[in-house]
Design a protein around this nucleic acid. Sequence first.
DNA 1: TATGAATGAGGTTTCATTCAT
DNA 2: GATGAATGAAACCTCATTCAT
Lengths: 200, 200, 200, 200
Amino acid sequence: MPLSEQQLLNMKQKRKDILEAATKLFATEGFEGTTIKKVSEAANISFGSVFTYFKDKDELFYTAVVEPLKELSENVFAFSTEAENPMIELEKMIETHFKLFAGINAYLTLIVQVIGQHHRYPDIFKELDRFHDEFRKRVSLLVENGQHKGMFAQQDPLTVATLYTSLLIGIRLNTTDTRYSDMWEQYVLSAINLFGPIKK
Amino acid sequence: MPLSEQQLLNMKQKRKDILEAATKLFATEGFEGTTIKKVSEAANISFGSVFTYFKDKDELFYTAVVEPLKELSENVFAFSTEAENPMIELEKMIETHFKLFAGINAYLTLIVQVIGQHHRYPDIFKELDRFHDEFRKRVSLLVENGQHKGMFAQQDPLTVATLYTSLLIGIRLNTTDTRYSDMWEQYVLSAINLFGPIKK
Amino acid sequence: MPLSEQQLLNMKQKRKDILEAATKLFATEGFEGTTIKKVSEAANISFGSVFTYFKDKDELFYTAVVEPLKELSENVFAFSTEAENPMIELEKMIETHFKLFAGINAYLTLIVQVIGQHHRYPDIFKELDRFHDEFRKRVSLLVENGQHKGMFAQQDPLTVATLYTSLLIGIRLNTTDTRYSDMWEQYVLSAINLFGPIKK
Amino acid sequence: MPLSEQQLLNMKQKRKDILEAATKLFATEGFEGTTIKKVSEAANISFGSVFTYFKDKDELFYTAVVEPLKELSENVFAFSTEAENPMIELEKMIETHFKLFAGINAYLTLIVQVIGQHHRYPDIFKELDRFHDEFRKRVSLLVENGQHKGMFAQQDPLTVATLYTSLLIGIRLNTTDTRYSDMWEQYVLSAINLFGPIKK
DNA sequence: TATGAATGAGGTTTCATTCAT
DNA sequence: GATGAATGAAACCTCATTCAT
C-alpha cells in the first residue's frame, strides 16, 4: 500500500520544516552548536523523525547549504551579459543582488561558515566554489561587454568580478544587524564605482 | 619563592606557543573541532598545562581572537587621514591592508567565524565591532579629506568606508587558496575605484 | 470475511520466509546485530509485516530456535535403543548425527548462542535443555544395551552419552569452515572409540 | 612529572578490575548485552574511566578474549609430546585440561561466543584459530608418539586431536551448571577412550 | 607549576515498537 | 493484512574540567 497523496504532502512539509529550522540554527549556533534535539524542537517534530528525513547530521547540514543553491542561481544569474546598455543592466544587477542578499541573511551566514572553514566541509565547499566560479564568470562577461562599449574603465574583468562577489559576501559579514536593509540603496550607488563607470 | 627570570621567560613562551597552536586549530577546525588535547599536542606541552595559562576553553578562544587586535590596529590604522595627497595615501593604505591581510590568513578565518556567529560570542564580537567602527571611521575621514580636495567623487564617506572593509574581509573569504598572494597587486588597482577617484 | 485458501497459503509462506531469513541473520549477526529491517529485507516483505507474524523480536528469536526442535528430534532420535546389534546401530546413529549436523550449520550456531548465554534466554534454554536431556537419555540406553551384550567397555552410560553430545556440538564449533563436510567420515570412525567398542 | 609508583600500581589494578568485570559480563550477557555503564559499575569505577584504559568497547572485548590466551597456552600446552609413557602423559594431560577448563567457565563462554559468530569478530577469531591449531598439533604429536609405541590404536592423529578439542569445548557448552566440577573425574576416564587406548 | 588520570554531562545515532492509512 | 513513518529510550563515545601527585 503506497503512501497517500496527503501523507506525501505532509512529509514534504515536514522535510521543509526541518530544513528551515536547521538552517536558522546552523547559521546562528554553528554546526556543533546545533543539536538534533534543538532542530527537532524548532521544527516541531519528534527527535527521531529528523533521521527519517536525513540520514545523519552531516547530510542535514549538506542539504541545508547545497539544496538552496539551485534556486539562488536562478535569481543571482538573472541578468543579461549581452545587454544593449551594460550600465543600466549593471545597476539593475547590483540592486537585485543587494536586495536578494539582504533577504537571505541566515543562509548567507551558513555559507560564510562553510567558506571560512572549508577544510572541514570539502564536499559542500566544492559546490559553493562551483557556484562562485560561474557567478564571477557571468559578471566578468557583463563587464567586458561594458568595456567594449566604452562605458566602464579598462581593467581585468575577472578581477573586478572577484572584487564584486567579495564585496557582496563581505557586506553580509560586516552588517550583522538590520541597518543593512535600510542602507542597501546607498550601498548600490557606491558599489557601482567598483566597475569604473565612465561618466559622459 | 619568586620565579626566576628564566622561568618567567619560559612561561611567556609557553603561553605564546599555546596561543599560536590554538589560533591555527580554531581557524581550521572551528571552536568545537578544536580540543584541548589537540592544542596541547600542537603546542608541545602537557594537557594540563593549558589550564595553567588559560582558565578554560572560552578564555583561550577569547584571547586568541582579541589579543592580536591591538597590534593589528597599529598596522591597520597606520595611515594619515589628513594627508596632503589623499589619493597617494589611499593607494598606500590599500596596498598595506591587502598585503597585511594576505599574511594573517588563519587569524582572519577566526574573525570570520566570530562575526558569522556573533550570537555565540557576544563579548568577543563587541571587541571586533569596536575595532571595525574605528576602522571605518578613520577610512571615512580620509575619504572626506579626498573629497574636499576634489580628488574623490562625492558619496557618503561612511558608506564607502563600509564597502571598503567589506571588500577586505570578503576577499579573504573568496580567495581561500594561494591565488590571493599572487593577485593582490591587481586587486589593489581595481579596489581604488570604489572610492570614485577623479582622473585629471 | 474469512481468508481464502490462497491467502492462508501466502501467509504460511511469508511466515516461513521470515523465519528462514531470521535464522540465518541471528546465526551470523547475533541477536542484537539482527535488526527487524534486515530481516524484512532478507525475507522480501515489508518492515511492518514482520510484526504481523511475530509479536516482537523476542518471539521471533524464540520461534526460530524452538520451532525446529520438533523436527530435529525426529531425526536425532531415529535410532533404536533396543537394537539387536548395538554396535551397528551405534555406527549408523553417529553417521546420521554427523551428516545431519553438518547440514544445519546456521541453526546450530543459533543453538550455541543460546546455550552460551543461557542467562539471557531462560525460556529458550529450558526447551533446549529438555531436548538435550532426552537426547542423552536415549543414547545412554543404547550404550547400556551394548554393554549388556559385551560390545562396549564398562563405563557410566550417561557420562558417555554426555561426552558424545558434547562432541557433536563441539565439532560444530571447532570446524567453522567447509572442511567439516569433507571430514565427517573420518570423524565418525574415531568418534566410535568414545563408546569403548570391544574388538573381537 | 611522571606518575608515581603507587599510581602506576593503582592503574594496573583498575585495568584488571575492568577486564574481569567485562569478561564476566560479556560471558553472561553477550557483547551487545554488556554496556559500558554496567562494566564501570561492576568494576567500581566511573563510566569515563573505562575509556581511559580501553579506547572503545571493541578493544575491551578484544582484550578480554585475546589477552588471557598467552597464560592459557602455558597451562594448556604443559605436557610432553615426547613422553616415555604416552598413556600416562595423556591421562595427566586430559585431567589437567578438564580441571583447567572447569575453572575458567566465564572465559570459555566468551570463547564460544566468538567462535559461534566468528564473522562478527574476524580479528579475535584469527587469534583463537591460531591457538587452536597449535593446540591440536601438539595433541596429535602425543597421539603419534603413543601409536608408535603401540599404546593407542591406529587412526589419524590430527582427527583425534580435533575430536578431543571439540570435546573439551563441547563439554563447556553442555554442562552449564555446577555438576561439571563434580563430574570431571568421570569425564576424564571416559574421554581417554577417544584415543583408542590398547589394554594390555 | 606541571602532569595526566578521573569524571560525567551531553551529543549522535540506532532501532524496536506503535499506529494511522 | 500490509505498509512504512513516527517516536523516544538507550547505547556509545567525546571531551572540558577537576584535582591528586
